[in-house]
């Protein structure tokens, strides 16, 4: 049993709040162009404090996925910095990068991409085991993570035999097992039936972790995230309480966002 390698010196953050604890996520001036020349991000600034749940909204092609892939250093090489709980993402430093990938838990949109091991248990164990955990501590992590998403009974089943909603919950568990600083969800409600959608919302609300949720599902954002960002044209076009954003019809229209038929943000109690 070995503890994960933690860096001994955490670089001081520019904007220390919350009694000294650095924000979960701090993005400064992030710009990025793909190798083919397509510019996706034009200087993104975002700060997410510890424990916040924030929705990242925006039309297709706004750069949402590009931004997400910067958070754990998969994409890099443009301008700007990303800090996760004070630690700067530095793709050249393997040790730091490993710690960053532990701190940033990304749940991808298709659970079949996320769940690649033969059984649920092995899949949830993959992340912590890659960090070097073994034995009882590894078992505890796996059990805890599966319990938090209500999927402990499915531990020994192959992922392909689970329903889509169950697979999405297991995908969340695979990331929770790494005890991340921030949970990043890519379209968490896509392809879910209404019951699975509600169950996932209950699970997300019960977690004591910072959440960044990329979504087109505006009611879901309103339900789960007090604060929302609109990423449009590679910049943060708006950053405000979710209900304020959703009540601003002109703002939504300017960024190709639309409320579903019959949904009225004004009817939601604040």
């Amino acid at each position: 049993m070995t503890a994960p390698n933690r860096p001994t010196t955490a670089p001081a953050s520019a904007a220390e709040e919350d009694g000294g604890a650095p924000p979960s996520l701090e993005v400064r001036g992030l710009a990025y162009a793909y190798p083919d020349g397509t510019q996706a991000l034009y200087g993104v600034d975002v700060t997410i404090r510890r424990g916040e749940r924030v929705a990242l909204l925006g039309p297709n092609g706004a750069g949402k996925t590009t931004l997400v892939l910067h958070l754990n250093g998969i994409l890099h090489g443009g301008a700007g910095t990303v800090r996760v709980a004070g630690l700067e993402v530095d793709p050249a430093d393997k040790r730091t990068l490993r710690e960053i990938r532990r701190r940033v838990g990304i749940v991808f949109q298709d659970p079949d991409d996320q769940l690649f091991m033969p059984t649920v248990r092995e899949d949830v164990a993959f992340g912590p085991a890659a960090m070097g955990l073994r034995g009882a501590e590894l078992d505890r992590r796996v059990r805890d993570a599966l319990e938090r998403v209500g999927m402990l009974e499915a531990a020994d089943r192959p992922p392909q035999h689970l329903s889509f909603g169950q697979r999405r919950r297991v995908a969340v568990a695979t990331v929770l097992a790494m005890e991340p600083e921030i949970l990043v969800l890519d379209e968490p409600s896509s392809n879910l039936d209404p019951a699975s959608r509600r169950e996932l919302a209950e699970i997300l609300r019960s977690l004591d972790v910072t959440v960044l949720m990329v979504t087109h599902d505006l009611p879901y954002a309103a339900e789960l995230c007090p604060r929302s960002l609109i990423l449009s044209g590679g910049v943060i076009a708006a950053d405000a309480p979710t209900l304020d954003l959703l009540s601003d019809a002109d703002l939504l229209a300017a960024h190709r966002l639309e409320l579903p038929f019959g949904f009225d943000p004004a009817a939601i109690p604040r």
């Binding site: 998969i74 940033v104 990304i106 991808f108 996320q114 993959f126 992340g127 890659a130 960090m131």
Partner: peptide, 10 residues
């Protein structure tokens, strides 16, 4: 995509 998910988990 699977490789991306694997790299993301270390």
């Amino acid at each position: 995509r699977v490789h991306l998910a694997m790299v993301s988990r270390g």
